[in-house]
């Protein structure tokens, strides 16, 4: 496979995953907002900006943190790279560059998602935002399915690799930004917490049902953290993303006969993850842990680029 093709597939995976993540984040935030008093709603939107690391950009633009403005900013705003429309655009550009490697189904799902935005949808009231996000999610699901139905070869592996690396990053950021909600200052773990805020987190990683299945003792911060970090059963957990990275790199290594720096880094990370206990993470400092994880993930991203000569 051409190095450039591999690179485009990988980035396609990353951008598609990011699109999906922002869509879920916006959806969960809309729900939280309409349930909350005005000030809490505003805080919800502020944290959505923080998770996508666009809070500064938003403020620089002179935007006021209100539902309407932030929702537009994160969904249909063409002028900043963190919006759904721009992520989709990047995903589609990468897909176009490797059009031959994709099945018609996979391409059609990306193209349909993109066309949703070409129609210049409104994102003014909560219902319009939810409709839009729902449309995007439909197509991301369609894409997931199409990739799943594609030949199990390097094409799908590079897409999955991009998705895994992106997912690890997204989940870590989500946890990191929301950690003051999970672990409120001065509040004992297990104290009274804002159930709605928590539900937002679980919704964003589609884990509401999974949580009920895995934990019988109700909604607690320690459990949520445990689920998102250490439970490989949850596809969007850090553990699952780390495992997926190792698996996919292994498949690629078997095909190309080459082992490299990225394989080694991924395996070291997976070994460490297997020993990770969420309780210890919380005790030692969740924020520091997540920052280190995000940094390591970025290093792995760079190593992948070098190993497969992306540039």
């Amino acid at each position: 496979m051409l190095s450039r093709t591999a690179s485009s597939l990988y980035w396609l995976g990353r951008y598609f995953e990011r699109t999906d993540f922002i869509a879920r984040l916006v959806e969960a935030t809309v729900r939280l907002d309409v349930l909350s008093p005005r000030s809490a709603g505003q805080a919800a939107w502020a944290s959505a900006l923080a998770v996508t690391e666009t809070d500064e950009t938003f403020v620089e633009r002179g935007g006021e943190v209100r539902r309407r403005e932030v929702a537009r900013f994160l969904t249909v705003d063409n002028s900043h790279p963190g919006s759904i429309v721009r992520c989709l655009d990047m995903a589609r550009n990468n897909a176009r560059a490797v059009r031959t490697a994709l099945t018609r189904d996979a391409w059609a799902a990306i193209n349909r998602a993109w066309l949703t935005f070409e129609a210049k949808p409104a994102a003014d009231d909560p219902n319009a935002v939810l409709d839009l996000v729902e449309a995007v999610k439909n197509e991301t699901r369609g894409f997931e399915g199409a990739v799943h139905r594609m030949l199990r070869n390097q094409t799908t592996w590079f897409i999955r690799l991009g998705q895994a690396v992106e997912r690890a990053d997204n989940t870590a950021r989500l946890l990191d930004v929301k950690y003051h909600i999970l672990l409120p200052a001065g509040e004992r773990i297990g104290g009274v917490v804002d159930r709605d805020q928590w539900t937002t987190i679980l919704q964003t990683v589609s884990a509401v049902t999974a949580y009920r299945w895995l934990y019988s003792d109700g909604l607690t911060p320690a459990n949520v953290i445990d689920l998102l970090i250490a439970r490989a059963e949850l596809p969007r957990s850090l553990a699952a993303s780390v495992e997926e990275t190792v698996d996919v790199l292994g498949l690629l290594a078997r095909r190309t006969g080459l082992h490299g720096e990225a394989d080694r880094m991924a395996r070291v990370r997976a070994t460490r993850m297997a020993r990770t206990r969420s309780g210890e993470v919380i005790a030692a400092g969740l924020h520091q842990y997540l920052q280190a994880f995000i940094h390591e993930n970025a290093l792995l991203h760079a190593a992948i680029g070098r190993q497969f000569t992306f540039s």
Partner: peptide
């Protein structure tokens, strides 16, 4: 067959090669 762009091709010793992951 592969769809290549110019950046995927290199010429070395008067022979054309394409850059692949392997």
């Amino acid at each position: 067959i592969e769809l290549v762009e110019a950046a995927d091709l290199v010429v070395d010793d008067d022979v054309v090669w394409m850059r692949t992951i392997a």
